[in-house]
Amino acid sequence: MPVATRAQQAPQAAVGGVAQLGPASPPPRPHQRAAEPALHQPPADASGSVCPLAALGVDLFYEVLSHLGDAETLQAAERVSRGWRAAIADGRLWRPLCEAAWAACVYSPAAARPDLTWRQRHALTLADRQRATLTADELCTFTWLFRFKSEAGRFWLALDPWWVGLPQLRRFFHADGSLTAAPEDPLWGEHETRWRFCKTRHGVKGLYVKVNHWPSLTVSRTPAGGWQLENEWVVYAAALQPGGPYARGLLPGVASHQE
């Protein structure tokens, strides 16, 4: 018969009413040190690459992207991950792009939209630069500088102060459909002048303005985001200046015809 080992001969110890075989684990020795936790490392993805946002921290992450600072770069960065998109969406990077775009414009409707995010306001700024239709609010808010074209003929050019180096005449469109001039206007007669929008054959309104029976005025944009109306004989240009009252859109409290 085989000889029983010491472990097999050890008495059974009852723990919680359950019999346990073998001796209990020895207590840790006083001189033993607990294992030190590993130093914190930024989380890595499945490929082992460390996310720059986690490695750099949010502030340094913003600093790096701010030097790349264009809309295309930010839009590409937003597609990297949800974390990147959330970090970029807070506006710290989009706001400087908006401010730079507005500084170069004479009219920026998106600047008057604090209800939108900075990213949305930047997108609206770019979209507005492509807008070709003038609204009635814009037409009736701006002061319009009037002059004749050379095609109008010598008679009218002789009456127009702009052709002798003097300031352009001012004209004002009103919401009731009337068009008026400044009191000192030498060309303005006693006749009633009315305006209206002309629709295109596709029903688009805001591309043409009709004044009395004269040829329709075509609406166009200037490189700085301003507005212009013109036909074969005359030009109306919105009196908009960089940094003026309308450079930040049609703001509440800005009275009409103040420029």
Rank of each mutant, 00 (worst) to 15 (best):
T5A: 13
R6F: 09
Q8G: 09
Q8F: 10
Q9L: 15
P11D: 09
A14Q: 14
A14Y: 07
A14V: 14
A14P: 01
V15W: 10
G16W: 03
L21Y: 07
P23V: 12
A24G: 09
S25N: 08
P28C: 08
P30Q: 11
H31S: 11
H31C: 12
Q32A: 13
E36A: 15
P37S: 06
P37T: 05
A46C: 08
S47I: 01
V50S: 08
A54C: 11
A54T: 13
A54R: 14
A55R: 14
L56M: 13
G57C: 11
L60H: 10
V64I: 15
L68W: 06
L74A: 04
S81A: 09
R82G: 14
W84R: 05
W84G: 05
W84S: 07
A86V: 12
A89E: 08
D90Y: 04
L93K: 05
L93P: 00
W94S: 04
C98D: 08
C98N: 13
A100S: 13
A101Y: 01
Y107D: 02
S108D: 10
P109C: 08
A112Y: 00
A112K: 01
L116S: 01
W118L: 12
Q120I: 04
L124S: 07
T125A: 12
T125C: 06
T125K: 00
L126G: 08
D128I: 00
R129N: 06
R131Q: 15
L134A: 07
E138K: 09
L139I: 07
C140A: 06
T141H: 14
F142V: 02
R147H: 10
F148S: 00
K149A: 03
A152Q: 02
L157P: 03
D160W: 06
V164H: 11
P167E: 10
Q168I: 00
L169F: 03
F172N: 00
F172H: 12
F173M: 07
H174I: 02
D176T: 03
D176R: 01
D176H: 07
G177V: 03
L179V: 15
G189H: 02
R196L: 11
F197E: 09
R201A: 15
H202W: 11
Y208N: 04
V211H: 03
H213N: 13
P215K: 11
T218P: 00
T222I: 05
P223L: 01
G226D: 05
L229Y: 04
L229N: 02
E230N: 11
N231F: 11
Y236D: 01
A237D: 15
A238I: 12
A239I: 06
P242F: 03
P245L: 08
P245Q: 10
G249A: 04
G253L: 03
V254D: 01
H257R: 05
H257T: 00
E259H: 15
E259Y: 12
